[in-house]
Simulated scan of single mutants.
Amino acid sequence: MASIFSLIFILIGGVASGLLSSVASMASLASYPVLLAVGIPPVYANVTNDAALIWTSIGSTISSTKELKGHWHQVAFYSIFTIVGSLIGCRLLLAFPSSVFEKVVPIFIAGSGVMVIVSGKHHSLEPHKRPLWQEIFYIAALLGMGVYTGYFGAAGGVIVLVLLTYITDEKFIVVNAIKNVICGLANLVALIVFIFTSRIYWMQAIPLAIGMFIGGYLGMDILRKVPARYVRIFIAALAFIQAGYFFYKAYML
């Protein structure tokens, strides 16, 4: 039974996680270590994290209805690929041991930090001017990111954000809003699978979800006031910090 102090700790961590998710696509930088700190094993911490993550997306989606107006057809189309990928990722998570799971994560996160910097210098072509192979590559990458979201998800939102920057020609804040919905749906699918196939620590997931909803809602207001260039730098810095943290845990301990 969780103590009142650990529940408050998780709630505060959830608010921080929701802010990081909506602003920097880095929810797990706060939420995953919080769950580990209260004694939840790594794989189950990831599953419990998924159970709460969807509330970040709900909060940020409610807060960004203005940015999403006229873009719901894009959300629906891209979500198909990330949802299918998420189902595959869930299966992989349950099939492979935690040692494999922990050693792969730092590589994905460090790569996401590099990608977010590179994408900031990208100037997208108009959709009708892109070669077909490029369109297919980006869609396949979204499918791959769905797999990663179902498998672990840490910094997965960053890579989805980068891919959407290349796929669409929208402003950064609009792309970020689309990303929040897509990742939320992928996490929802993962949660449904895990409810029946794994263990979720609901006592910890509930306060984490409440905090994530609050942080996700407030984060979009912050994002509207900060230039996209600074947000990208912030995202990349957090990605490298998180990659270092998981690299240390996986290879140095």
Rank of each mutant, 00 (worst) to 15 (best):
L29E: 07
Y201G: 00
I88V: 15
P33T: 09
F240L: 08
M115P: 11
S6I: 13
Y148T: 07
L142S: 01
R91L: 11
V23R: 06
I210P: 01
Q242R: 07
F96C: 05
A141F: 13
T168D: 06
I195R: 07
L93M: 13
V158Y: 06
I109R: 00
P227M: 05
L36D: 10
I136A: 15
F196L: 11
Q74P: 05
V160G: 01
V84R: 07
A186N: 01
E67T: 00
A140F: 15
S99R: 11
V231S: 06
F77E: 13
I206N: 04
A243N: 00
Y151E: 06
E126C: 12
I159N: 11
N180R: 09
G215V: 00
F9S: 10
A239E: 06
M115D: 06
A52W: 02
Y151L: 15
F247C: 03
L238R: 09
V226K: 14
S31R: 01
I80T: 12
G13T: 02
S31A: 13
F96E: 01
Q134S: 14
A239P: 13
V84Q: 01
P42C: 05
H122V: 10
P97E: 01
P33A: 06
F196T: 15
G216Y: 01
V118P: 04
S198L: 13
V189P: 04
V160P: 06
V160K: 03
R232Y: 11
G120N: 13
L164C: 08
S79G: 11
S17R: 09
L68W: 07
Y245E: 00
L53M: 14
V193N: 07
Y251W: 11
P41Q: 08
L19N: 00
G211P: 03
S60K: 03
I214A: 11
G85P: 08
I10N: 00
Y78P: 07
A30T: 00
Y248L: 11
V15L: 02
S99D: 08
V181H: 02
S64V: 06
S99H: 08
A30N: 03
M26E: 10
T48H: 04
Y251N: 00
T197I: 10
K66A: 14
P127W: 08
G89V: 03
A2Y: 08
A250T: 01
S17P: 02
Y151C: 12
S21C: 10
D169R: 15
